[in-house]
Simulated assay, not measured.
Amino acid sequence: MDVKDRIDIAWIDKGAERVITLLNEGRENSMALFVGGCVRNALIGAGTTDIDIATIHTPQQTTEILSADGIQVIPTGVDHGTVTAVIDSVHYEITTLRRDIETTGRHAVVAFTAEWREDAMRRDFTMNTLLADCDGNVYEPLGLGVEDAKSGRVVFVGEAEERIKEDYLRILRFFRFHAFYGKGAPDEAALQACADLSDQIATLSKERIAQEFLKIMAAPDPAAVLVLMYKARVLPDLFSKDYDAAVLARLQSQDVITRLIVLGGFSVRALDVFANTMTLSNKQQKRYVDILAAADLLREGQDAKVVIYHKGNEITAQALLLRAAQKDQKPDLYICQNWEAPAFPVSGEDLKQAGIDQGPEMGRILRELEDYWLQNDFAPDKLSLLARIK
């Protein structure tokens, strides 16, 4: 393969370089190269986290070569050609070049190959087919990818419809990649194929849908890509009739759950609608309810300090961001960043000592004292509060 471009190699750590060097040792032609997202991101100047490596070696050969040098190798997905090397607690995923024999949705029967082009043909987008060596040389096994990545064109490898039928999750991946890496209008052929096959998303598990959709909601500007998804009839049931795209565009929060509240039309009932399509964890659902409740308190005129006392600083900050987006105002998070709610100074034990028996009456008195304390800006101390007991 000819060199098509050059990238900065600062992201290649010593462990990755060691793996590549060992797998290529004694070979004139490359037996292992960096592949996919790490190369793409280095090319466009985005951050690189996960490092993936493709190799001509079989999983057994890869394991033998690396183990002989004292590297731990985990057989994470041998049937599909993948092993993971662990060096100083850092994981490097190494996958043998493959070609598809049979594909049925997410599952594929593969055969190993020594051809870089065959392996590239089974990938989703041209920008993900790019390869690189430790010197920063970039290769295009399909003669495509470099310009697509640089210009922000998310283009399927080969026929869009064929790639999507191999795994219908690629519909959502297309919109995610456009949200993060796309520039200008999306590829028309890809968009049309996504629209034509959008009803097949229902065949995916709710867990997979949630995982990919929440990544879309984490994009720098999810409002823009959601417009494209809605027009393409992709997951239309997730869009509340009260959803306001302008509010989401104004929202100065990167929090995915806060963004979901906008998509759900500021309704707790949206969680039931979401559940028909995707699975949110109990923790995510609780966060949705808490932020929405805090936003409702603010909408009803409750002081931000009181909301912080009940919901905490971080939840209240998200609620303030929601309210600011709704009102098209600049958010003011000063109180959340510079004030901590004090603890209520009166306990049930204090009331016992004051002669109040444990039970409903004690609970009523505690609530009344707490309400008085909150209404007076947390100022009354224990003695003054106990003095109010009648």
Rank of each mutant, 00 (worst) to 15 (best):
226 L>S: 10
226 L>N: 06
227 V>I: 09
227 V>A: 13
228 L>F: 05
231 K>C: 09
231 K>M: 09
234 V>T: 05
235 L>P: 00
236 P>Y: 15
238 L>H: 00
239 F>I: 11
239 F>P: 01
240 S>A: 14
241 K>W: 09
244 D>E: 14
245 A>I: 09
245 A>R: 08
245 A>L: 09
246 A>L: 12
247 V>C: 05
247 V>R: 01
248 L>I: 11
249 A>D: 01
250 R>Y: 07
251 L>W: 08
251 L>S: 08
251 L>I: 12
252 Q>V: 04
253 S>A: 14
253 S>M: 11
257 I>N: 09
258 T>V: 10
259 R>K: 14
259 R>Q: 10
260 L>Y: 02
261 I>D: 03
261 I>H: 00
261 I>W: 02
262 V>L: 13
263 L>R: 03
264 G>P: 01
264 G>K: 02
265 G>F: 02
267 S>N: 08
267 S>M: 10
267 S>A: 13
267 S>L: 10
267 S>Q: 08
267 S>P: 06
267 S>H: 07
269 R>W: 12
269 R>Y: 14
269 R>A: 15
269 R>P: 07
270 A>F: 14
270 A>K: 08
271 L>R: 15
271 L>E: 14
273 V>N: 08
273 V>S: 11
275 A>V: 05
277 T>E: 08
278 M>E: 05
280 L>Q: 05
280 L>H: 05
281 S>R: 15
281 S>C: 13
281 S>E: 04
282 N>P: 08
283 K>M: 14
285 Q>H: 07
285 Q>F: 07
286 K>S: 13
287 R>D: 07
287 R>N: 10
288 Y>H: 05
288 Y>N: 05
289 V>A: 05
290 D>F: 05
290 D>T: 03
291 I>K: 02
291 I>A: 05
292 L>G: 00
292 L>H: 04
293 A>W: 04
294 A>G: 01
295 A>L: 03
295 A>C: 08
295 A>W: 00
297 L>S: 12
300 E>W: 00
300 E>N: 07
302 Q>T: 04
303 D>W: 02
303 D>Q: 06
303 D>T: 01
303 D>C: 07
306 V>T: 11
309 Y>P: 03
309 Y>V: 03
312 G>Q: 02
313 N>P: 01
313 N>H: 02
314 E>L: 12
314 E>F: 06
315 I>L: 06
315 I>Y: 00
316 T>I: 10
316 T>Y: 05
316 T>R: 08
317 A>W: 00
317 A>T: 04
317 A>N: 04
318 Q>G: 12
318 Q>Y: 06
320 L>A: 09
321 L>F: 03
321 L>G: 04
322 L>T: 02
325 A>M: 06
325 A>Y: 02
326 Q>E: 15
328 D>W: 06
329 Q>G: 15
329 Q>F: 13
329 Q>V: 15
331 P>S: 15
332 D>F: 09
332 D>R: 15
333 L>F: 06
334 Y>S: 14
334 Y>T: 15
334 Y>L: 14
334 Y>R: 15
334 Y>A: 14
335 I>D: 01
335 I>L: 13
335 I>S: 04
336 C>T: 04
336 C>N: 05
336 C>V: 06
341 A>R: 06
341 A>G: 10
342 P>E: 06
343 A>K: 10
343 A>H: 08
344 F>V: 12
344 F>M: 13
344 F>G: 14
345 P>F: 09
345 P>L: 12
345 P>A: 13
